[in-house]
């Protein structure tokens, strides 16, 4: 269900402009906290990374996970607990969250890849719901209250993360690290095999690839990166609650990716920015956000399944074909 993402790589002229665009974007991100509210920016960065991690699975392996909230919210809980109760250094707490999400990804992925397509979606949804129930009951998550008042602490014992700028640049660094990791995965031989599985699983099997191992590997990576986003969010916002593990969150990340463009590298970032900005804008009004999210879902599915970035890429492709 993805769009031709290799398109950019095929066109040297576009590739240079992509690099220039990337540099401009990074410069803009570095300057952004001087113009915008840093907390909103950090929220966008966390969710953009979450959506990119989710997109790794749907866009490049063709697996729709309806349970990514478990990794995002689960990692947030682990990190919050480590930072607050064990008083770990923030980066170590984040790494623990990532490791926890990876282990959960291994378990959930092992079960879910036994079925394909629509069943995969239902199984991941059910397993994440089970995790949400567990989070409601086990003592360390503090049930409905969640873990509140998580200290941001000192990065490596030196940098005070209570300063908004320090926190922002750490979040940005984590986001760029995650995005680069995904870019590397997608453009590696491993990533090419994933795309082969997406395009024709049976053929990939007949070519001798152990498809299940690749799928599981991608699932664990996606879970770990989603966990990275959740852990960072826990440090930024200083809490971890049930909201992050519930199915609505899985739905939200699907929407961000769908809106931006499934299978495009930057699509999820665009989608996440729009959805978070919209939620932020609507927070003051009493308009039901859920209804709006539902409407965007319906419109995306019916009218532009490629997403915003996907449609733009398609347009550029058609235009350059027309010129040739």
């Amino acid at each position: 269900m993805a769009v031709g993402t290799e398109y950019l790589a095929e066109q040297p002229r576009l590739r240079t402009s992509a690099i220039v665009l990337g540099a401009v974007a990074i410069a803009a991100l570095l300057a952004a906290p001087f113009f915008f509210y840093p907390v909103l920016l950090m929220s966008i960065l966390c969710f953009a990374l979450f959506a990119c991690a989710f997109n790794l699975l749907i866009g490049y392996v063709g697996l729709l996970s309806f349970g990514h909230a478990a990794f995002f919210g689960g990692a947030a809980y682990f990190t919050a607990h480590a930072a607050k109760v064990w008083e770990w250094e923030p980066l170590a707490a984040i790494l623990l969250g990532v490791a926890g999400a990876a282990v959960m990804g291994l378990v959930m992925g092992f079960l879910a890849i036994r079925r394909q397509g629509i069943y995969f979606a239902m199984i991941t949804l059910a397993l994440s719901q089970m995790f949400a129930f567990i989070c409601l009951q086990v003592p360390f998550t503090h049930g409905e209250d969640g873990i509140q008042g998580v200290p941001r602490g000192y990065l490596l014992g030196i940098v005070d993360l209570n300063q908004p700028l320090a926190m922002y640049y750490l979040t940005l660094a984590i986001f760029l690290f995650g995005f680069f990791a995904i870019w590397r995965i997608v453009h590696s031989p491993f990533g090419n095999i994933l795309k082969a599985i997406r395009e024709n699983e049976r053929r990939a099997i007949s070519l001798g690839y152990r498809v299940d191992r690749y799928k599981l590997g991608a699932f664990v990576m996606s879970a770990a990166l989603a966990g990275l986003a959740g852990s960072t969010k826990a440090i930024v916002f200083q809490f971890a609650t049930l909201t992050d593990v519930q199915w609505q969150m899985s739905g939200e990340v699907i929407l961000m990716t769908l809106l931006g463009g499934i299978g495009t590298l930057v699509g999820p970032i665009v989608g996440a920015s729009l959805v978070i900005a919209l939620q932020n804008y609507l927070a003051a009004s009493d308009f039901p956000v859920l209804v709006l999210i539902g409407i965007i879902f319906v419109i995306c599915v019916l009218l532009f399944r490629r997403g915003i970035v996907g449609e733009i890429l398609e347009l550029m492709k058609r235009r350059s074909k027309g010129a040739a």
């Binding site: 269900m1 629509i118 979606a121 699907i254 039901p288 956000v289 999210i293 319906v298 995306c300 019916l302």
Partner: peptide, 26 residues
């Protein structure tokens, strides 16, 4: 949506479910 990836049917009905639930909650 018939004839394309069945995941889109799931996503469409998911969106419809959100609209209905959100509206009634409102």
């Amino acid at each position: 949506l018939y004839g394309i990836d069945p995941l889109y049917g799931l996503l469409l009905t998911f969106g419809l479910a959100l609209i209905l639930e959100g509206a009634f909650r409102y």
